[in-house]
Design a protein around this nucleic acid. Sequence first.
DNA 1: TTGTACGACTTACGACGTAAGGGCGGCTAC
DNA 2: GTAGCCGCCCTTACGTCGTAAGTCGTACAA
Lengths: 233, 233
Amino acid sequence: MASQAEPGTEPRIPLSRERVLRAAVSVADSGGIESLTMRRLAEHLGAEAMSLYYHVANKEDVLDGVVDVIATEINEVVDRIDVPAGGADWKKAVRQRILSAREVLLRHSWAPGVFETRTNTSPAVLRYYDALLGMMRAGGFSYDLAHHALHALGSRALGFTQELFDPNSGAGAADQGADLAEMAGQFPHLVGMLAEIAHDDPDSTLGWCDDQSEFEFGLDLILDGLDRIRERG
Amino acid sequence: MASQAEPGTEPRIPLSRERVLRAAVSVADSGGIESLTMRRLAEHLGAEAMSLYYHVANKEDVLDGVVDVIATEINEVVDRIDVPAGGADWKKAVRQRILSAREVLLRHSWAPGVFETRTNTSPAVLRYYDALLGMMRAGGFSYDLAHHALHALGSRALGFTQELFDPNSGAGAADQGADLAEMAGQFPHLVGMLAEIAHDDPDSTLGWCDDQSEFEFGLDLILDGLDRIRERG
DNA sequence: TTGTACGACTTACGACGTAAGGGCGGCTAC
DNA sequence: GTAGCCGCCCTTACGTCGTAAGTCGTACAA
C-alpha cells in the first residue's frame, strides 16, 4: 500500500525469518515482552500481521526464535573471551563466561522471562551449554559432576536468577500506608534485616542492594563448592 | 440462570474473594495456568465473568491472590515442622523447611511460573521469608550474611528452580530426525555427558536424571557454602 | 413503605492469535 | 512472446480474551 502510494521509494526489503526474529527482539527491547504482538511486530516491519506466517509458524515459534537470537548474541560475546585454558583455572573461565552472558541479558531485561517459558531448547543454547561443559571437563570434572553442576547452577549458568521478592516493594508498602511498627511486629527479622542493610549501605546507587554483587556472591558460592568436590573426587 | 431454572435447589453460596481465589487454584490445578481465564473461573463458580470483578480488581489481582493462597498453604505445612532449634542445627532446619515447601509446589506444578511473574510480594511470602531469616539468625547468621543467603538461594528458598534446558528434548530431537553422529560433532560434550549419565543410571524411574536429587544437590551445595562462611565470619 | 446499596447479570468493545482465501509479480516452458 | 505456476504478501473474518458500562433483583435501614 505505502509502497504503491509512493512509487520510486525503497524497493521494499523482503521479509525473512531472520528479519522477523530480529524485529521481534527490537520490539521487546523497546516496549517489553508484553508489547510483542504479531500485529505490532508486522507494523514494525512495514507489513501485515498475516504476512509473518509465511516465515514463522506461529507466535510460539517467534518466541523460540527470539531466545535463539539472544543465545546467539551471548555466544558471539563469550566466544571472544580469551580463555586462560583448563586445569585449576576452570573456575575463572566459567565465572567470566557466565558474567559475560549476564551482560548480554542485562541489555534485554525481558529475555530471562522468555527463556524460562521455552521447553524446546534452541541450538544456540545447546552450543552455550556444550562449551560450558567443555570448560568443566578441561578443569577435571567428571561428566557426572558436570551434570550436577549444570543443575546446581540452573539459570545462573546463563547469567540470571529470578528474584522472587523485591524487598523494596515491601519497604515501599510499609512506608506508604501500614504502620512500620505493625510491620515489625509481623515480620521482625525482615524489618531488622532491611534496617541494618539500609544502614550499612545508605548511599548505594543501585538501591539498597546491588543485584550484580549478589549475583556474583551466589555464583562464587556455587563455583567454590563445586571446586571442593572436584578436588576431593 | 441455572439457579433460576431450578428453583428450590441450593440457596447459592455467595461469591467472595476467598472463594474466587480458591477456585482459581483449583482451575489451574486441573487445567494448567493457561486454562485460567476469567470466564472459565466464573463458570467454575457457577457465575458470570463480570461478577468476579466485584470481589477482585482484575486478573492480575487474581494471580497475586493465587500466589498468596499457595504461600499460605506452604506456611501451614512448614509451621507444622518440629524444628530442632538453633545453633549448628540451622542447616537441618532450613533444609527441611525448603524441601517441605517444594513438596507443596510439586502439587501445583504451574505455581513456580506464576511466582516468578509477580512483583508485588504477598504477605504470606513475606511471612515465609521472615521465618526463614529467623532460622538463620538463630543459627548465628548476621543480617548481612542472611541477606546474601536469600539472594544466593533465590527461588530455591521457596522450593523450586526453573530448569532451563531439558536434555530429554535434545536427546529426543537427536533420536528422531538428526543424525546422532552429526549431533555429537556439534555438541561433543553434551552428547558425551548424556551417554555416560544414561549408561550409569539406565533404569531410573524419574527419567535419565532425578530432579529431586538434583534439587537437593544444589541446595546442599549452597547451604554448605553458607555454613562455611558462617563459621569463619 | 420506601429508599439505598450490595451483589449479581447483560451487553458490548477493542485487542489478540490465526484460518481461509485472493491477487500480484516474476519465473519457467513452450 | 505468452501461458501457467508459484512464492510472497494482503484482506477479511472468526473465536477468545480482559473488562468498561449499565441494568436488575433482593435485603435491610429509615
